[in-house]
Design a protein around this nucleic acid. Sequence first.
DNA 1: AGCCCAATGAGGGTTTTCCCTCAACGCGAG
DNA 2: CTCGCGTTGAGGGAAAACCCTCATTGGGCT
Lengths: 240, 240
Amino acid sequence: MSGHVTAEQAFRSVLFIESAETLAAIEGEVRAFAGPMGYERFVLFSVSAAQDEVVERIYWVEGDWFGNGESVDAETYIRRCPVTRHILDEREPFFWTKTTGAHGELYRVVRSPRGRGIHGLQVPVFGPLGLEGAMSLGGERIDASPRARLALGLIAEAAFLAARNLLEAAIGGDVGALSEREREVLAWTAAGRRQVEIAATLGLSERTIENHLRRIRKRLGVATTAQAIRVAIRKGEIAA
Amino acid sequence: MSGHVTAEQAFRSVLFIESAETLAAIEGEVRAFAGPMGYERFVLFSVSAAQDEVVERIYWVEGDWFGNGESVDAETYIRRCPVTRHILDEREPFFWTKTTGAHGELYRVVRSPRGRGIHGLQVPVFGPLGLEGAMSLGGERIDASPRARLALGLIAEAAFLAARNLLEAAIGGDVGALSEREREVLAWTAAGRRQVEIAATLGLSERTIENHLRRIRKRLGVATTAQAIRVAIRKGEIAA
DNA sequence: AGCCCAATGAGGGTTTTCCCTCAACGCGAG
DNA sequence: CTCGCGTTGAGGGAAAACCCTCATTGGGCT
């Protein structure tokens, strides 16, 4: 909370996080840095447009996010935090504030949060495919200065990338690779054919084409077929 | 170069750059920060990348990039710097080094550049649409420490975002079969957004988005939006 | 002034895609 | 021999995209 954010400490934290070998080490470092600035609620997650939910996988959630004295689990967080959706519209870290009034909880994106309520900073992390993850930090009396935004933006990005490196390697394996059939269907789609047409060409049911395309979207972690085309081209799954 | 990069100074520079109102101010700040670290060649550009050219528009190019004692213009830089293409494969700032041997110039991406030659740091900048721009800094004897990478990454990202904000507004759309608006709509589509979402993001009617997309398909001579994505990527209208 | 065109938006439909679930077959790995 | 997974297919409904035409505004160009 108090004083000033030391840039020096932020740099050291980032470098430490980048070389961390466990999630716990990352968490500890973030806590140690952000704690004195008034942040004691944390969420770190990856984002995928594939689901109806924005959040794909939560790496770390901690703290009394909903002011009920209980620490939350991942599902609760996803269900209850509407601020999360805003990362779809923002291109830089932003502050938000939650006030509890007559009509229940009210979340807003603000320039600089103040007053009573729970405030926080949401940091989107972008990569070659667009939005890839985010970290949210919250607290009741937080340092919401430009310097804090800058420092926490750095830390959060490093934390997300490091955490993903640690966790996704263990989990995923080769997520994203398409099967032969899927590549074929997507290639025809990229060539402008409709599902019925592709079905006829390949001698399959229209339903099968549809199922393949859904599976493709899920595998590539995208929301629409149009996006799947782009991602597949980028990954070299199909030709441009 | 030697000594230590002060994180404090980096933070101050970023905050200054974010509020800069001319490109010259941004350039001056970057020079002042990176100069003492041995960097005196700069390129700042936006990326739209597809096939032939990665670079879309160069905002700032300065310094003796090719060791011939002359400052280069934009076209020369694009034509002669093969390192640029690497930003398509990288997801973080990376160092490179250029050595001149018997078989001409040799560029390599390295962990930590040393020795004779021109070295540099390439910083990709990502956004909701994927890779959006980059900044490259070079010099003969540069500080290539992790701290330098971190600080310059910050500075470069801020510089790119600030420069784009300043310049893109002024510049009108030039080349390309698609209009500025159409490219924008298609880019969001390729990023997985639906028409209604794009309408909300751009503050337009859903109808308008639909009309733009129809016009895009007509102009590109394709049947479906999925195909339009592929064709546009191939033509370099939007990024892969 | 007259004209073209980008950008915006609408009416009123049709077609296509998308979503969730369930199910069957064959094939290779443990 | 199960188990996972790729491939195939379906029912039923909801959402999104797509199609036509028409209309207005504002810039630029002749």
